[in-house]
């Protein structure tokens, strides 16, 4: 109940922030979405923390709505790339206050949903763009809803091949936002939100909000061997929420690090 109330308050705060008459300048801006920046001619291959070399052939995300919030990011997400690299060398687990990210205030929004091909580096404009007020934001917040079409009723869909120690596991699977994701005491609203994505931006008229999705962390912690105990269909093993690959994926596809948000004053 507390979670539902919070979500409603958040939406109301967003509406008030964009429609009030406090003197803030109303702005409209373009929104562009894409996958990670890379050479699209090459397959996207990376190695997970469990030593699996993974090549993705499909990685789609139903993204939106998206909000920009005045609330500061958690300390662990404020660190730069070099500091994060240090995590690989040190037994580090920078912690923060879990639910200590309070509600904040929404200053800009993208109210539509768009399908993002996380393997395609080219940015794609979202029809209608976004709007808000010209006020600094510190974090972004992505909401995930299931989508038909290429996503087949899921919020995230992925396929590829994982290889380790001579074992090759072609796989596919998806993240469906439903009650199965809800922990005792939690809510579906909380399960669908990725909050606290660092986004130190100030929306401005004529600019472009750019959102990129990085799928390389989606399988941290996953051990693909479990899938081979099942039966492949059409040459692929399908992970679900009942196996460790699906559980890892459902967590990691909703990680803040999977999203990058920037703003360009010009398109």
């Amino acid at each position: 109940m507390k979670r539902r109330t919070f979500a409603l308050a958040l939406l109301l705060a967003g509406a008030a922030g964009c429609g009030d008459t406090t003197g803030s300048e109303r702005v409209r801006f373009a929104v562009e979405v894409g996958g990670i920046e890379r050479d699209a001619a090459q397959a996207l291959t990376f190695t997970s923390d469990q030593g699996w070399e993974i090549t993705l052939s499909e990685a789609r995300v139903a993204l939106g709505p998206l909000y920009l919030n005045t609330i500061a990011p958690l300390e662990s997400d404020r660190r730069g790339p070099l500091e994060r690299f240090g995590d690989l060398l040190l037994p580090s687990a920078y912690a923060h206050g879990e639910s200590h990210l309070s509600s904040g205030r929404i200053v800009a929004q993208l109210t539509t949903q768009v399908e993002v091909d996380a393997l395609a580096p080219a940015l794609v404009a979202v029809p209608g763009g976004g709007d808000g007020v010209r006020e600094p934001a510190l974090t972004g917040e992505v909401w995930m809803f299931n989508r038909d079409g290429a996503l087949g009723g899921a919020a995230v869909r992925v396929a590829g091949v994982a290889r380790r120690d001579g074992v090759e596991v072609p796989f596919e699977g998806s993240l469906v936002i439903d009650q199965a994701l809800v922990t005792t005491g939690g809510s579906l609203d909380a399960a669908r939100r990725v909050r606290g994505i660092p986004a130190p931006v100030t929306p401005a008229d004529g600019g472009a909000l750019r959102v990129r999705v990085d799928p390389r962390g989606w399988f941290e912690g996953a051990d693909f061997r479990e899938l081979t105990a099942g039966t492949a269909r059409d040459g692929r093993y399908r992970f679900t929420s009942q196996d460790n690959v699906g559980r890892a994926f459902s967590n990691r596809a909703r990680a803040r690090a999977a999203y990058g948000i920037t703003f360009s004053p010009t398109r």
Partner: peptide
């Protein structure tokens, strides 16, 4: 959610590598 396999939720965090990190990460808060 799955009686045959207990699993924990990471809540959007990426730097938690294992259960030891998870416990201390949570305890620090």
């Amino acid at each position: 959610r799955n009686a045959s396999a207990l699993s924990f939720e990471l809540g959007g965090n990426s730097s938690v590598r294992d259960l030891r990190d998870f416990v201390t990460f949570s305890a620090r808060a």
